[in-house]
Design a protein around this nucleic acid. Structure first.
Lengths: 99, 99
DNA sequence: ACTATAGGCAAGCATCCGCTTGCCTATCAA
DNA sequence: TTGATAGGCAAGCGGATGCTTGCCTATAGT
């Protein structure tokens, strides 16, 4: 319960940065990407010029929030999107219908 | 379109702060609260010891993000919750069902 | 008119955060 | 074994941010 609450704060903090949101967009369009894949595709399709280290740190934050899950394979580390932590948001403040 | 994108960034930034999330919780439980009402109720029910000015600044951020709407009446300013900006979140990253 | 209440404005400060920089480890190919 | 590739660790810097402090405006009550 407490750990869950801490996790919730991490989710909101993770979503607060535009580069991290672009990473989530990129992973939504293509799953199982490595760090370098993400770097190049973010530069190509999202106009981001962030360095490898910057993206790596962002991925750490996203993974800590549970929004990104990873899978090791040799020297590669594949990253995928997990949107389930977002459920807490809409359950916390139910979205008023209409308008 | 551009203004909309800027608004989205404001929503995420607004949600990043725990005090602002507590304000949203409070407004979800009781609508049409004044600044002083919020201050006292946040202290009572959420254990927050923030000053009036701090809460006022948080309300400005929330209003700028469209998450809080206000209504003037004499020297009172009533604050209410508007969850509709949250819709953009779940539309952007559809929540995977199950587990 | 005077006082109290509800709220606003703006400067200063301490902390946090994203990014860079430099170096290191691990896996694979030649 | 040597070199190249994929990724990790950690210190430092500059800008953003939450909060305080002090003062100001406006509305309501007596």
């Amino acid at each position: 319960m407490l750990a869950y609450s801490l996790r919730v704060a991490d989710v909101f903090k993770a979503l607060a940065d535009p580069t991290r949101r672009a990473i989530l967009d990129e992973l939504r369009d293509r799953d199982d990407q490595t760090l370098f894949e993400l770097c190049t595709r973010l530069a190509m399709r999202h106009g981001l010029g962030s360095s490898r280290q910057a993206i790596s740190q962002h991925l750490d934050v996203l993974e800590g929030a549970g929004l990104v899950v990873t899978r090791r394979e040799g020297r590669y580390k594949f990253h995928s999107l997990d949107t389930s932590p977002l459920r807490a948001i809409i359950e916390r403040w139910p979205i008023s219908d209409g308008r």
